[in-house]
Design a protein around this nucleic acid. Structure first.
Lengths: 419, 419
DNA sequence: CATGGTATGTGCGAGCCTCGAACATAGCAC
DNA sequence: GTGCTATGTTCGAGGCTCGCACATACCATG
């Protein structure tokens, strides 16, 4: 345990340095800006703006970014020459006249991104174009309970190799969304439930060695969030959250224009926050975690208690069907489930107050009815704050969202120059 | 209510723009960098580094920031000429020889910052030097339950005027820490408990008009956090949290090198997150908020139930005294209180995982015993994450921390060019 | 069909800022 | 005194954006 010091009572400054806490010896300031750094940064920001706006002319981009048109031309021209961008057909001019604008957009022939999801029981790989299309998909299933990480990694690598073979040109990089804890500083898997052999596996390094491409890995809710940020509802938003529901709960945050990764890639482990201190025993050994009331485990126990048919196969999707068919017990259970999910979202909202929540996993099966129920409960559970609104959206189906998210990892690495 | 859309199933891009959610018409990209912008940004970062490191030579700053020595000289020279910085006595050279370094530090004659705290019952103003010293303090008390905002604002303004009269040169600006909700976009008070007349008062604008100085306002936990970031334990940390306890709970977050302010200045309202869904009724009308178990209200009710003397005057400080004196009931209550405080911190930790927590308000009175108890409970309530450590620190006494924090608001405005 | 109006995209020189190399400075050790 | 080391400064080179002027392309009107 590190020493725990108190703020001094004496005038602060004399021995300023010894009082610093928690800084490694290699601590570095945020680097200063240099004229040469401007280029890549601005190129990244222009491309971000393109993602956020869709096909856009140079003049429009200049207005959006608040810079001179010539600046945009200078940034964009090399990208056109390299074939990253293409110039679309001239748009009809506005009624007021003027030279018609030529929108810029990503070339279908630009380098794609190789995306992968790695789950305990399967791997799924694909190429993702800069326009968000998914192609060259490959899937492989793993034996349950493998004795070592080898077979899983080999399976994933085979899948990746097949997918990469379909790429016309070398992709920008490989992004992997992992169904478990990931240390994003070291590109290493920390632990995967149901696949303990993957604990501490240096996945980034290993894939980089095999394929000679930059590799970005992260855990899967964060990847989904980035998929949304680059290709989905998150485009142009400054602050939003992704919530994954199902057997477990997951969460990721986009705050103030940046994916939030806590120290060592922590943060977002909302499933084990307390919502009922003396509640049910959780898998983590504590009582009353959000996971004890907002996962499929809870739902199925309650479905059995309510006498629903096939309680162990109940999902939000099934509940919604039953409710539509007039099963009032199912409708009641669905509402209670929605409220339980809403509790965790409400707590998150009080803590960080993002503007938009994107829901993934099981609750997506419940459709708009489920989404609206969750939204209603969250609004009821959060003290009103005048002028602030809340938006709830249903995310893509799981694999699609995750693959796009894995691609988003690579994009973020390439475009979001930290500064 | 805003419409709530789903991610489309078709290839994403064609009608990209209509799908954007939650963007005002004036949405702007992060601005591009320009050569002229580099100057102020780098100056700000060098000054930040000075705050973080204490008195430091040009060469050391250059190493820390990873830039050429000449660059630092170029940035620092104008600041020396203006009298913001001064060159200290040459430090003895290292054993290995070399020209002795001349550390740079803030001049005692540099422009100070005018800091204020505005609470329902009082105002407290002071000048804060760039070295963190507090002087020219003034205090005024308000009548309870005033009929209008006028007298409160006049009282604050009088206080400010007296403090400003003591300043040798015009201060950098006025920072105000407000004991209530603040909209930092509009520099307006949203609401203050116990002083409803201040609701929606445009404090920033009014003080700017009266004193012709830049004004920054924010709610007081966030100010305290910034005080720590610039003058205290937070120097050089990338991610930490401030937790205020007492009659109410407050919280502020410094994430990845930035103060977190949610949309419209929201976020950090941890007091009304649920920790016991069927718990006590909270002032907010909901049940089981953290505030129902981790404030002085709870503590005093329990003190009465435990038969402690003068239960309505119990504080952490008093509890600690009793416990030291051998009162086991007090010791037990103190531990329960510490655990209740720890619950909210544990939830925050799961959500954002900051490295360091600085505690303010009532629990500071409980001293290291209280801090250690809270630390122990948090560590017990959070699933372990290998390699991550948690640090707990006691903050300054309240007014001091808050005034420095108010000064920190102005510094952040001046130095932390958003970018 | 010619003309004026409007908006887009492109050269060109100016200005800002950092960088590297070379140099002056100031202490230590022998 | 001589060599060594590290700090701080001088100066020219290079990267990037900006404003201005200009070519281009379409509309509306008479």
């Amino acid at each position: 345990m590190r020493d725990e010091r108190e703020a001094p009572a004496e005038p602060a400054r004399e021995q300023a340095r010894p009082r610093l806490i928690g800084r490694g010896p290699a601590a570095r300031a945020r680097p200063l800006l240099s004229p040469t750094a401007i280029g890549p940064v601005n190129r990244g920001r222009v491309l971000q703006a393109l993602f956020d706006l869709g096909p856009t002319s140079r003049a429009e981009l200049a207005r959006y970014a608040g810079v001179n048109r010539t600046t945009i031309s200078g940034i964009v021209q090399p990208l056109l020459d390299q074939g990253v961008l293409v110039e679309g057909a001239p748009l009809p001019a506005a009624v007021t006249g003027g030279k018609p604008a030529r929108p810029l957009w990503f070339s279908p022939d630009a380098a794609p991104i190789c995306a992968a999801m790695l789950m305990p029981h399967m791997a799924h790989t694909a190429l993702v174009s800069l326009t968000g299309e998914i192609f060259a998909e490959n899937v492989c299933r793993f034996d349950p309970d493998p004795a070592s990480a080898g077979p899983l990694i080999d399976g994933l690598a085979d899948c990746l190799a097949r997918t990469l073979a379909a790429a016309g040109r070398p992709p920008l990089g490989i992004g992997v969304a992992v169904g478990g804890m990931v240390d994003t500083d070291s590109n290493t898997i920390v632990a995967v439930n149901l696949a303990p052999v993957l604990a501490r596996y240096p996945l980034g390094q290993e894939l980089g060695r095999r394929f000679r491409l930059p590799v970005s890995i992260d855990h899967h809710p964060r990847a989904m969030l980035l998929g949304e940020r680059w290709f989905g509802i998150g485009r142009g938003l400054r602050t939003f959250a992704a919530i994954y529901t199902g057997e477990v709960l997951g969460c990721a945050l986009y705050l103030d224009g940046h994916l939030y990764r806590g120290p060592g890639g922590g943060g977002g482990e909302l499933g084990h926050t307390f919502v009922q201190l003396d509640g049910e025993l959780c898998r983590c050994g504590r009582r009353g975690c959000w996971e004890t009331i907002a996962t499929l485990g809870w739902l199925r126990r309650e479905a059995r208690a309510a006498g629903l048919p096939q309680p162990d196969a109940v999902t939000s999707s099934r509940l919604a069907e039953l409710a539509v068919a007039g099963d009032t017990a199912a409708a009641r259970l669905m509402d209670r489930y929605a409220r339980n999910v809403a509790v965790g979202i409400a707590n998150l909202h009080q803590t960080m107050s993002p503007e938009v929540y994107v829901l993934y996993g099981d609750v997506v099966g419940g459709g708009t009815a489920m989404r609206d129920a969750i939204a209603r409960h969250v609004r009821e559970l959060v003290p009103p704050r005048p002028g602030r609104e809340l938006t709830f959206a249903l995310g893509d189906i799981e694999d699609r969202a995750t693959l796009r998210g894995a691609a988003g990892l690579v994009l973020s690495e390439n475009l979001q120059f930290a500064l």
